[in-house]
Design a protein around this nucleic acid. Structure first.
Lengths: 229, 229
DNA sequence: TTTTGTGAAATGATTCACAGCC
DNA sequence: GGCTGTGAATCATTTCACAAAA
């Protein structure tokens, strides 16, 4: 028996897009920008799908969750589709982002130019190491983590990036959430515990390498077992 | 009409693990190491699942693809399971890795300690910028990209990491593949074209942020539309 | 009694294939 | 004639729920 949600419908609502589709929208958006820069004004699902590295049927179905923005017999208007995909991704505004942990990786990410071009801007860099506090990185000066609340509130930031060692990640995450952050991008190799309503995505270098090594291993085994192709 | 593969069976073979499961094995492995370091010698699927952030049924089914390594009524032997999961991931050996593009991000990754602890070792750093060639980073000296073939062959590397700008990524990828690399981890925001038999995984900061902004946007919309919980 | 391992059911994602529109 | 949008079919993944083992 479940608490009565306002309709336990199996039907998909107009505004909820499958997770798998959401994860591909940024890819489509980037492909669209490339096409626009290349001078295309319209594009077929076939061509856009090729540029994005997916099948055309998948692309069309993905876009259909956002609305019906193509023209049969013609294709999609590139500029128009950029707007619709951007809107779906919430890129009508610029999102302020705070980053905690200004070590090697934090430095690299803070210096990454793509931030501003893609709808985000770094409004605060934080660390606990006194040797790093005060250092200038890009447009920002590294602040002590104690100033997190002030910055998150005054910049109205809701997205935080964690680039600390694993041992500090949960504590930092708790402080981010306490300050009002509701989306976290975690580069630390640690599982983060967060309250409901907070989204976490994780990026982990060694996980990715281990997934590749699984496949390498399998390929090597195949070669030995004598599978020709 | 398809070329006759040696049996077009719908049945899953003993040694092929679903992709979704493969992607979780590194997570389980890390959780197991944490448990081992904490002194646990056995663990139940419930406890390991909690440590890994998944449901216990999913964990058990995932592990069941590797074999039957638990004891009913007891759980899994931590040390033994570490060995089995490591073996499945192909971590019985150390994988040599080459990295191309020693900018901000390349520097950061090259300096990342976790490499060696997790079954990998960097055997070559490459760049085309003469200003960077010769620079010492960690244990390695940055080489010119022209030396790629030599190093890949002599170190028998099969995994390559790309941390160049997007504009160089495809060319670098082609050179990696030509040198014999068959697994690529791509940090450049570009779609890579590779021949069959080569695996590519992509990590993209702005994609991740845009996925988060999608959800932030939706949360904000929900709040306005007056959804209480 | 406790906990695994796993068929079977349920859910989610992808692909097919074509009606409908330009 | 060409291409989108989308039901229906297929395929993949997750969850359920319980028999079997220790």
């Amino acid at each position: 028996m479940r608490a009565a949600l306002s309709e336990r419908s199996g039907r998909r609502r107009r505004s909820d897009v499958p997770e798998a589709t959401v994860a591909r929208l940024p890819v489509y958006l980037r492909a669209l920008h490339v096409l626009a820069d290349g001078g295309s004004s319209t594009v077929s699902s076939e061509a856009l799908a090729a540029a994005a590295g997916v099948g055309s049927a998948k692309l069309r179905k993905d876009l259909s969750y956002l609305g019906s923005y193509g023209t049969r017999g013609v294709g999609y208007d590139v500029a128009e589709l950029v707007l619709h995909v951007s809107a779906a991704l919430g890129l009508g505004r610029r999102w302020p982002v705070v980053l905690v942990g200004v070590g090697n990786l934090g430095h690299a990410l803070a210096g990454y130019g793509g931030f501003d071009e893609r709808g985000f801007c770094v409004v605060g860099l934080f660390d606990v190491d006194p040797a790093r506090v005060g250092e200038r990185v890009g447009e920002q000066v590294v602040r002590h983590l104690d100033e997190l609340d002030d910055v998150v509130h005054s910049a109205r930031a809701s997205i935080g990036v964690i680039t600390t060692p694993a041992s500090a990640a949960q504590d930092v995450c708790d402080r981010l959430v306490a300050a009002g952050i509701t989306s976290v991008l975690n580069f630390a190799p640690a599982l983060l515990q967060v309250p409901a309503g907070v989204d976490v995505r994780k990026v982990d270098l060694s996980n990715e390498l281990q997934i590749l090594s699984f496949h390498e291993h399998r390929k090597a085994a195949r070669a030995l077992t004598g599978v020709p192709a």
